[in-house]
Amino acid sequence: MHAVSYTAQWMAAARALESERDDALYTDPLARELAAPKGFELIERYEGGGLLPFISIRTKYLDDAISSALADGGIDQVVLIAAGMDTRAFRLDWPEDVTVYEADHGPLIEEKRRRLDALGAVPRTDRREVPADLTGPWMPELHKAGFDPSRPTLWVAEALTFFLTEEQAGELLRLLAAESAPGSRLAFDILGRALLRSPFSKPFLDQLAADGTPWIFGTDEPEEFVRAHGWKVTDLTEPGEPGAGEGRWPYQVQPRSRRGANRLWLISAESVAG
């Protein structure tokens, strides 16, 4: 499997650990089986630095963003981009007639299907696999799976943008905007630029790079970045803020004006016409 597939197992391991807590922010009963073989090893390898609480808080934030985006019934198709070992189609309460597309590269999708089948997992909505190389033109594959660009969409890109360059992240947002009917929404995360440049993050970042999964893109001006690529931020949250792991986040939330702060942006956005 690709190195990024191991990242998917790492995320699954983190979700398994979260699910087993007394104060779990969510429960993902399938996560433990999806984390093998490398997930828990990577948890230890990348231990510390707030990663585990961040992964949990981000997952919960996006769970909430999905439920909020679908609440008024205006959106009935959801695309999980680079879905990895995401099990939202199996664990969230979906409104009727919602289609969930899971896009990721073929070998990962096959391995995930094999494991979910072995567990007898049954999706709670119309779930469609979209095997695609996300570094190439993948929209044709999404359309082939039934996606309808004339209807509003909720795009979810969890733990994705930092694996891209700034240019690629911008292109992705533009591509999603171009495929978005009015009323479409986007929920995702962006890392802070200071965080990626901090000498104190360097040992961890060097480790990720050596493992073939470097973290590259981050910005401390997410509103501008999002706006420049066809979207408008409707919610911008940092871990530790109310509704985003308040009480679980072991760091202070820094005022926006504070120089040098390590930012982890949780973002909801709406498409901008034109």
Binding site: A194, S201, F204
Partner: peptide, 28 residues
């Protein structure tokens, strides 16, 4: 002090020393 807490350490040192620390010139 882990990587995310470090920025808070820098602020604590600034508060205690009354000196501003240049984030672009930090020496670990």
């Amino acid at each position: 002090v882990d990587s995310l807490a470090f920025v808070e350490l820098v602020y604590a040192i600034e508060d205690a020393s009354g000196r501003e620390i240049d984030f672009d010139a930090i020496d670990v």
